[in-house]
Simulated assay, not measured.
Amino acid sequence: MKLKKGDRVVVISGKDKGKTGVIKEVLHKENKIIVEDVNVRTFHVKPSQKDQEGGIFKREAAIDASNVMYDIGSKKEQKTTKIGYKYVDVRGKKVKKRIAKKTGDEI
Results as ranks from 00 to 15, higher is better:
1 M>E: 06
4 K>L: 13
4 K>E: 14
4 K>N: 11
6 G>M: 07
7 D>A: 05
8 R>N: 09
8 R>E: 10
9 V>S: 07
10 V>S: 13
10 V>E: 10
10 V>G: 05
12 I>M: 13
14 G>L: 06
15 K>M: 08
18 G>K: 11
19 K>G: 04
20 T>S: 14
21 G>K: 05
22 V>E: 12
24 K>G: 05
24 K>V: 02
25 E>S: 11
25 E>K: 15
26 V>K: 08
28 H>A: 11
28 H>T: 10
28 H>D: 15
29 K>S: 14
30 E>N: 10
30 E>R: 12
30 E>W: 00
30 E>I: 03
31 N>Y: 05
34 I>G: 04
34 I>L: 07
35 V>Y: 02
36 E>K: 12
37 D>V: 00
37 D>H: 13
38 V>W: 01
38 V>N: 03
39 N>M: 07
40 V>T: 09
40 V>D: 01
43 F>A: 01
45 V>Y: 03
46 K>A: 15
46 K>F: 06
46 K>L: 13
47 P>H: 05
47 P>L: 01
48 S>Q: 06
49 Q>T: 10
49 Q>F: 14
51 D>I: 03
51 D>T: 03
52 Q>A: 14
52 Q>R: 14
54 G>Q: 05
55 G>H: 01
56 I>M: 03
57 F>M: 08
57 F>R: 10
57 F>E: 04
57 F>T: 05
58 K>C: 03
59 R>N: 11
59 R>F: 01
60 E>C: 07
61 A>H: 07
61 A>G: 13
63 I>V: 14
65 A>E: 15
65 A>K: 12
66 S>H: 14
66 S>W: 09
67 N>Y: 04
67 N>H: 13
68 V>I: 11
69 M>A: 11
69 M>P: 00
70 Y>F: 15
70 Y>T: 02
72 I>T: 12
72 I>Q: 10
72 I>C: 09
74 S>E: 12
74 S>G: 15
75 K>C: 02
75 K>V: 06
76 K>H: 04
77 E>T: 14
78 Q>F: 00
81 T>Q: 09
82 K>T: 08
83 I>A: 09
83 I>Y: 06
85 Y>D: 09
86 K>R: 15
87 Y>R: 14
87 Y>I: 07
92 G>K: 10
92 G>V: 10
92 G>W: 08
93 K>F: 11
95 V>I: 15
96 K>R: 15
96 K>E: 13
96 K>H: 00
96 K>F: 00
96 K>W: 01
97 K>G: 00
97 K>H: 11
99 I>R: 06
99 I>M: 09
100 A>T: 03
100 A>F: 08
100 A>S: 10
102 K>A: 14
103 T>V: 06
103 T>H: 06
104 G>K: 06
104 G>C: 07
104 G>D: 09
106 E>R: 04
106 E>S: 03
107 I>P: 08
